[in-house]
Amino acid sequence: MSHVDKRNRLDEEVFTYRHTKDNKVLIYWMGKQVTVLSGKHSEKFLSRIANAEFKEAQLIMAKATGNFKRGNEKDNK
């Protein structure tokens, strides 16, 4: 997996998720919601992440969000 994360960003907890009662999965990046998975996608995600280690779980969440960062996000500093 080292060739996937060359900048070691997945060592930090940049992605988190929350499973809702209606079987949706909300995925957050740096505390901001970036995607919602429902139906078969949420079931597949939950089964993959259930036994994953920390860094592997971060990679699963990164892949589930897709390519949401394009470089035009505002930096709220």
Score class of each variant (00 low, 15 high):
Lys32Leu: 07
Ile49Leu: 06
Leu37Gln: 02
Ala64Phe: 00
Arg9Trp: 05
Asp22Gly: 07
Thr35Gln: 09
Val14His: 11
Gly39Ala: 03
Leu37Glu: 01
Met61Asn: 11
Val25Ser: 03
His3Phe: 03
Met30His: 12
Asn8His: 07
Leu37Gly: 02
Lys77Phe: 06
Ala57Glu: 09
Glu73Pro: 05
Val36Lys: 13
Asp5Thr: 06
Leu10Asn: 09
Tyr17His: 15
Leu10Arg: 09
His41Glu: 15
Tyr17Ser: 11
Lys21Asn: 09
Asn8Leu: 09
Arg48Thr: 12
Lys44Cys: 06
Gly66Leu: 02
Val4Glu: 01
Asn76Tyr: 13
His19Tyr: 12
Leu46Pro: 11
Gly39Gln: 01
Glu13Ser: 15
Val34Gln: 10
Arg48Gln: 15
Lys40Val: 13
Val36Ser: 10
Met61Leu: 14
Ile27Thr: 09
Glu13Trp: 06
Asn51Pro: 01
Lys6Pro: 00
Ala57Thr: 06
Ser2Lys: 15
Leu37Thr: 02
Asn76Ser: 05
Gln58Pro: 11
Glu13Cys: 10
Asn23Lys: 15
Arg70His: 09
Arg70Met: 04
Phe54Ile: 09
Gly39Trp: 06
Glu12Thr: 08
Gln33Ser: 04
Lys21Val: 06
Val34Pro: 00
Arg7Pro: 00
Asn51Trp: 03
Lys69Thr: 02
Met30Thr: 12
Lys32Glu: 13
Ser42Tyr: 04
Ala64Pro: 01
Tyr28Glu: 08
Thr35Pro: 02
Val36Met: 13
Lys44Trp: 08
Gly66Tyr: 04
Val25Ile: 11
Ile49Asp: 09
Ser47Glu: 13
Leu46His: 12
Arg48His: 12
Gly39Tyr: 05
Glu13Gly: 07
Thr16Val: 15
Gly31Leu: 02
Leu10Ser: 05
Lys74Tyr: 00
Val25Asn: 04
Ala64Trp: 01
Leu10Pro: 03
Ser47Cys: 07
Ile49Gly: 08
Asn23Tyr: 15
Leu46Lys: 14
Lys74Cys: 01
Trp29Gly: 07
Gly66Cys: 01
Lys21Met: 04
Glu12Cys: 10
Asp11Leu: 09
Lys24Met: 13
Arg9Gly: 04
His3Ala: 05
Glu53Lys: 11
Lys55Cys: 04
Gly39Lys: 09
Asp22Phe: 11
Val14Asp: 03
Val34Asp: 02
Arg70Thr: 12
Thr35Leu: 13
Lys63Cys: 08
Lys24Ala: 08
Met30Val: 11
Gln58Tyr: 00
Arg7Thr: 09
Ile27Cys: 11
Lys40Glu: 15
Glu13Lys: 10
Ala57Tyr: 02
Met30Leu: 13
Ile60Pro: 13
Met1Glu: 15
Val14Tyr: 02
Thr65Val: 06
His3Gln: 06
Val4Ala: 05
Lys69Ala: 05
Gln58Val: 00
Arg18Gly: 05
Gln33Met: 11
Glu13Asp: 12
Lys24Val: 07
Val36Trp: 01
His19Leu: 14
Lys32Gly: 07
Gly71Val: 07
Glu53Gln: 14
Glu53Trp: 03
Ala50Ile: 11
Ser42Val: 04
Lys69Ser: 03
Glu43Gln: 15
Leu46Phe: 08
Met1Cys: 10
Glu56Thr: 14
Gln33Ala: 08
Thr65Glu: 01
Leu37Asp: 00
Met1Val: 14
Arg7Asp: 11
Thr20Ala: 09
Phe68Ser: 04
Lys21Phe: 11
Ala50Phe: 09
Lys6Gln: 13
Glu73Tyr: 08
Leu37Cys: 06
Ala52Ile: 05
Lys6Tyr: 10
Gly31Cys: 03
Gly31Asp: 03
Val4His: 03
